[in-house]
Design a protein around this nucleic acid. Structure first.
Length: 509
RNA sequence: GCUCCGGUAGUAUAGUCCGGUCAAGUAUACCGGCCUUUCGAGUCGGUGACCCGGGUCCGAAUCCCGGCCGGAGCACCA
């Protein structure tokens, strides 16, 4: 009980916690792993495996292992760039791993254990075609290869090791029960021949032609690496059943396994194949296209890794599929961003506002954060000009459209105006008064403004990849890429480029 | 079709193992008050759910059976 989460997380008493791991006290070091195939970047769908596995090891002071499962050079071919991309995404998420393995470095280990199982009659080299085997297995019958003598099996295994079989000619199977109610369990395939001359592996090229299948490699590694808890998607449930037979043959004890359901989020593509296909067909700009649920895209939009972690912890380990709404993520993100983001004015689709009758020049001092005056201010001067003592400012098209002649409004932190006329392109108004108190009583609308001349061309890339054009205030020229700010009454955005114009990505309201 | 798993408010989650304290808790969304020089944040209050039908029991969200709906697996993929 010494690792009971409550004792460690006392200071976060209000935080939602993970439920305790099954049989946690049975193990000295809680060990989990995240084991991606480096064939794509990571996305929100992977977050459950990553965050839960990582978070539990922090909770129990255990060990989190990163293991690349790159044992299919043919149909799910890994790519070099993704080994790094996966690590980059993991680091961004704040999930540091204690150990790292790559399965394509471990082939000889798997061969050794296969040899042992073959020698002990617990696995066999099967020369049947998949169709022949399937026919037998559905009838709960042994295929001709299964009952060959240990000597013959070992000969076949030696032949396999020495390259005596070409792709498709033989496969190693691990013995289970032929009458298992689920045919998918019966004598599952563990290792096959790949023509790596034709399909070289991105890391080890054509050096090996014998490649393990998932259950062999993952099953062996989970034991060898001391895994105590496997947290993975429920699509692996029958794989657990398969692997337990191998564990029995080898006298190993199977780790605790938790199978969670799929995680989706409304409207975002979260499957590797759809992401990759969409990019290849030009539907998406890249892996960080804001319409995608990749970590790269979330990062670009200003979603904080901590928000993702909280969300995943909230969802927990249930086997149910969950379809999250973006609000579930935004509410966590908003708490972080609201405290940290500086405020600026942005006027979308700018419209000219001409105010006449200014009694003097006005100096506006706008706090960068309403609750944090220590963060400083931006200042703008509005000076009356000409016989009409007029000043021109930019306001958003949306605010302009909502105005009616005779109405009183306040330019935030500046002064109050009375609207005279509104057209599509411009609004005319007269100076009303300076004091905020004057309009507070009548609950006048407060709007954002930018003095003509202090505008900075800005583009906001929305989540649907559309672009909103407008003006940001001149102070935004001092921003840097990756800054996350709030455009007041518009939303939180992440700064992407600060150049001729400002380019930001919209995060959320 | 076969083998598993699951169904609590709009969304997510607690409770289900060991039936009563659950006329169902929490977060978010929504509505309203307060506060506030952002239609933000904060704060207070409110609306809103146990898939359906039987059964067992004094008592069922919780146990049993049936149905319906959803998901996963059934690859020489991971």
């Amino acid at each position: 009980m010494k690792n009971w989460p409550e004792t460690q997380k006392k200071h976060e008493a209000e935080e939602k916690k993970l439920s305790p791991l099954p049989n946690a006290d049975k193990y000295k070091t809680i060990t989990t792993r995240f084991s991606p195939n480096p064939d794509c970047v990571l996305h929100l769908g992977s977050a459950r495996a990553i965050v839960l596995s990582h978070e539990y090891t922090r909770m129990y002071n255990g060990k989190f292992i990163l293991r690349f499962e790159d044992t299919d050079p043919k149909t799910k071919k890994p790519q070099l760039e993704y080994y790094e991309a996966v690590k980059r995404d993991l680091k961004w998420l704040g999930c540091k791993w204690d150990e790292e393995y790559i399965q394509s470095d471990r082939l000889e280990i798997y061969y050794g254990i296969v040899g042992k199982m073959v020698g002990e009659g617990n696995a066999y080299v099967c020369e049947c075609t998949p169709e022949q085997f399937r026919e037998k297995t559905l009838a709960k019958q042994a295929c001709p290869c299964r009952d060959l003598s240990a000597k013959e099996q070992t000969e076949r295994w030696q032949k396999m090791l020495s390259g005596g079989y070409t792709e498709g000619q033989a496969v190693v199977r691990v013995k289970t029960e032929l009458d298992h109610p689920n045919p998918a369990i019966r004598d599952w395939p563990a290792l096959r021949v790949i023509d790596t001359g034709k399909y070289p592996h991105p890391r080890v090229g054509s050096k090996y032609f014998l490649w393990p299948l998932y259950n062999l490699a993952a099953g062996i590694d989970d034991h060898l690496m001391g895994m105590t808890h496997i947290i993975r998607g429920k699509e692996h449930y029958t794989n657990m059943v398969r692997q337990k037979y191998m564990y029995q043959h080898l006298g190993w004890e199977y780790p605790e396994a938790i199978h969670y359901g799929r995680l989706k989020i409304t409207g975002a593509a979260l499957s590797k194949s759809k992401i990759v296909a969409g990019i290849n067909e030009g539907d998406y700009a890249d892996f960080d296209d804001p319409r995608l649920g990749t970590f790269a895209a979330l990062k670009k939009r200003g979603i904080q890794p901590e928000a993702i972690k909280k969300l995943i912890i909230e969802v927990g380990t249930k086997p149910n599929d969950v379809t999250l709404s973006w609000e579930n993520l935004y509410s966590h993100n908003r708490k972080i961003l609201d405290a940290s983001s500086n405020r600026y004015f942005f006027v979308a689709a700018p419209v000219e506002l001409r105010v006449t009758g200014l009694p003097k020049a006005f100096q506006a001092k706008l706090p960068l954060h309403p609750e944090r005056p220590d963060r400083g201010f931006r200042e703008y001067t509005v000076t009356p000009e000409g016989t009409e003592k007029a000043a021109t400012l930019w306001i958003s098209d949306k605010d302009a459209k909502a105005m009616q002649a005779g109405q009183t409004m306040r330019l935030m932190e500046l002064f109050n105006i009375t609207i005279n006329s509104v057209t599509d392109k411009a609004v005319n108004a007269s100076y009303a008064s300076e004091s905020y108190e004057d309009v507070r009583k009548i609950k006048a609308q407060l709007i954002q403004w930018i003095p003509k001349g202090a505008e900075y061309q800005a583009e906001v890339v929305q989540q649907d990849a559309s672009v909103v054009q407008g003006y940001a205030e001149a102070a935004c020229k001092k921003l840097k890429p990756d800054d996350i700010i709030q455009f007041e009454r518009f939303g939180f955005v992440r700064v992407n480029e600060v150049g001729e114009k400002l380019v930001v990505y919209y995060a959320q309201k």
